[in-house]
Design a protein around this nucleic acid. Structure first.
Lengths: 222, 222
DNA sequence: ACCCACGTAGTACCGCGGTACTACGTGCCC
DNA sequence: GGGCACGTAGTACCGCGGTACTACGTGGGT
């Protein structure tokens, strides 16, 4: 039995969800909330398996409520459910820690399947949104780990040179790299020079960009 | 009516899919293939709406077959279906152009819903995999467009300075920036200096990293 | 009329980064 | 033993990058 907290500012909408979820043995609506603040309070009080969260609500919206519920360390998984499929909403919701994002025009089986999935720790995204998310994903992750070795420029680097490149990617100066690896600055210069020549970069700045391109360096890895 | 090409090296598996898909009015299996090469050929010949693709196959595997079908510009959408949920497979399949990735332990309704979704251009990912994909997504996209304005360092920049920062993020030298914006190198230096001071970077390299951190610069945006 | 933010531009100076060399020790493979 | 790849280190040189100033025009707000 999966316990559910329904959050939506429209009573009729909540009623619909309650009817649907209570009509199957698998789920049970244990509470309702009409806005974000109430959702946060009831999530803490009722500790439901799943919170069915609307985004557009007066006062605290669903995104903020999701953020707080997740931040509070509640065991509840949040499944965001909205009529709007705007990219900003999807991103914001997922960044807030939502386990799923479905559209309200989903068929009942899809909603139930979604609740089932998030209740066991999986995540779901409406197919219509997945397409765009994947496109974006491909944009941000142009090359993934498996492809690294395939890049001839990278594979020509020795282990030491790859270490140096990573350090350069962190924005370290030659002196800092020398200090970190306990080397002379001359040696670091030699390594950096060889790296630049091998990867075809004219200066360390393009080496940094190169490192980011290939996923060798990543934001906030310092 | 959605036409489907079933690709799997195990005859019994193909048989199972055929029975399932032909048992509903919505889908019809128009062909079968036992390995990648045959899949590519039949996709071109039969032009099915959806290709149900296994990954593990003798000879050409499902990933490569997917890549070729997509590259050939076929109208078919590829839905990868496998027993293995290894990250490498998922990434490789999606990068190859697959519209979906489901596990073979999916329930019949889920499979049918998946076929329905990809046939109309949407994308689906098995809930169990979506979780990991989202985690990774969050890793690569630590800050998204909506958050940019919230960073006090960025919002303190003037429009011109923000342009300059983007240019620096591309790895351009002061001279190149000057040429691009038709400015003197002195002016560029002045701008860059102010940008560094405002964002708290000691040199342009850290400015590049800063730009990547905030998503102002992105891989392969040149 | 005044000031302020912004964009523009200059000079002078210093230091780090990058290049071009040379050089040597170690481990490995023929 | 000889050769090769690799990591280490040095010297010498030059130029771009960054800092510290000063300076001026323009548009907007008081």
């Amino acid at each position: 039995m999966t316990t559910v907290l329904v959050v939506d500012d429209q009573p009729l909408q909540r009623y619909g969800f309650r009817i649907l979820l209570d009509s199957v043995a698998e789920t049970e609506v244990v509470g309702e909330a009409a806005h974000g603040a109430e959702a946060v309070r009831k999530a803490a009080e009722l500790r439901p398996d799943v919170v069915l969260m609307d985004i557009r609500m007066p006062g605290m919206d669903g995104i903020e409520a999701t953020r707080r519920i997740v931040a509070a360390g509640e065991r509840s998984r949040v499944l965001v459910l909205t009529t709007f499929d705007l990219d900003e909403y999807v991103h914001a919701a997922l960044r807030a820690g939502a386990s799923g994002f479905l559209l309200k025009d989903a068929r009942p089986e899809e909603l139930l399947a979604g609740i089932r999935a998030v209740s066991i720790g999986d995540a779901v995204i409406a197919p219509a949104l997945t397409r765009r998310l994947l496109d974006e994903f491909a944009q941000y992750v142009p090359a993934h780990r498996g492809d690294l070795a395939e890049d001839p420029r990278l594979s020509s680097l020795t282990d030491r040179e790859r270490e140096i490149l990573v350090a350069v990617g962190k924005g370290w100066t030659n002196g800092e790299i020398a200090g970190h690896f306990v080397l002379s600055e001359s040696t670091v210069k030699t390594h950096v020079g060889r790296v630049l020549a091998k990867i075809g970069a004219r200066d360390r700045i393009q080496a940094v960009i190169f490192a980011y391109d290939l996923g060798l360096a990543r934001p906030s890895t310092d």
